[in-house]
Write a protein that binds this DNA or RNA. Structure first.
Lengths: 246, 246
DNA sequence: GACCTCCTTAAACGCCGTTCAATACCCTTG
DNA sequence: CAAGGGTATTGAACGGCGTTTAAGGAGGTC
């Protein structure tokens, strides 16, 4: 039996009265990123917001990249699935919508996804939740990964496009009084289909339109998946009637 | 008749013997980005590579962001469609594959897409090419945008996931001798589906696997689109037989 | 040769991520 | 309660960054 001063018998040291911890640092980082994107985030600014010098952050975090890794996993934790939803299409669509909503709340997260391998606990939990949905839908083996990827990839790609378009419209509003208008007319000149689509989309409410698009694409690809569902012929339980997901 | 010194009668001044122009600058920027991502690109480095000081770049480009805008449009120009392909599924798949190949060649471009509205001439030309494919497929009006978006968004999302995974594996190879292996085992502990999928994918050739995945998802969503094609019932010309796209 | 415009330089500004010796704080030990 | 030691923070410094600006050189025009 180990003596009474063995590490295993002593309770974990009570945390000291520190001014900082990872959670607070990540919280400030996420707030700064939400407020102004990557341009707003610097180690000095995070430290200032916490009433501390920049160097002290390096006690909790090895580099700024590591801080961004933590921030990304933090917001991945906001994606939620309804575990009681038995209809696989509704479950998949719900997860996708929650995913999209989070990416729209934290625009910077999208750039992080493209730049950083993602191995935090929330990333794993999210993957498991997605796999569970697709597994209940009947997919298994290689098809399980693949089915989930179809949905996840669509979410990411759709939000990339949506945000790029939204930014373009914002720039248009502020900068495009006349000069750029002319450039646009000229640039779109040789592109009749593009011109007609741009003309048609001029008046619509961009946000509602994005949501309709997202739902449409989701229906398209859930249809495609449904046709490949292993027991799609003999198991109709928990199946939503039509194509519409919402 | 205008006098002989009118601007319209004088030929455009022969370009002076400059050491720089936008094309050369963008070329160097793309090369640096291809070589080492964003960390390699600085105005000073671009200037060095051209045998010039950093400040002189600002004669051709207002900011570094503007240079990145040019670089992004430059690589978007590499995406090519076969204009003679009459089967709409093959045409859409070809464009998607060319798109994916370009994003894999220029990994940094993906981050740019998430951060930058994209209004260059090559971006417009690419959009028109995509619209043309979907228009020939029978889509029109709002459905035309939507159908193209389904395919494009998938390309972007799939490459994001593919690169993130590839990076994770690379980190795994270099850093994961033992310490991280333990972390992984623990992190995946509560996630049985994830654990089984990770175990299953350990031995496969990652690149081939990515391509199979990409083709699978493409089939899924082209199936979904085919079911919504306006004249899908009475127009079977140029229709590829089965589901397999490749 | 004088002039003017175009292009480039060199230096500077302020901010950045990161490192490090010095130091203060607080808990444990004697 | 004094001493000691790991814990946590400071402040200064380094080199690199994007960008600005005054000064100057290099071509073409008169």
């Amino acid at each position: 039996m180990p003596s009474s001063d063995s590490v295993w018998l002593r309770p974990d040291r009570p945390p000291r009265d520190r001014r900082l911890d990872r959670e607070r640092i990540v919280g400030v980082a996420v707030a700064l990123l939400d407020a102004g994107g990557h341009r707003e985030l610097s180690m000095r600014r995070v430290a200032d917001a916490l009433g501390v010098t920049a160097g002290s952050l390096y006690w909790y975090v090895r580099t700024k990249d590591e801080l961004l890794e933590l921030a990304l996993d933090h917001v991945l934790g906001e994606i939620a699935a309804d575990p009681d939803e038995t209809d696989w299409r509704l479950a998949a669509a719900g997860l996708a919508r929650s995913h999209r909503a989070m990416l729209l709340r934290h625009r910077w997260a999208l750039s992080e996804l493209t730049v950083r391998p993602n191995l935090g606990p929330n990333a794993f939990a999210l993957a498991e939740a997605g796999l569970r949905v697709m597994s209940r839908a009947g997919f298994a083996g290689d098809g399980l990964d693949a089915a989930l990827a179809v949905v996840n990839d669509h979410v990411v790609g759709a939000v990339v496009a949506e945000l790029a378009w939204r930014d373009a419209l914002r720039d248009a509003g502020t900068n495009w009084t006349e000069t750029v208008g002319e450039y646009l007319r000229e640039a779109v000149g040789g592109h009749p289909l593009l011109a007609s689509r741009m003309a048609a989309s001029g008046d619509a409410d961009a946000e509602r339109e994005s949501e309709r698009r997202f739902a449409f694409a989701l229906d398209v690809l859930l249809d495609g998946l449904a046709a490949r569902r292993p027991q799609s012929d003999d198991d109709m339980s928990g199946e939503s009637g039509g194509r519409r997901v919402r």
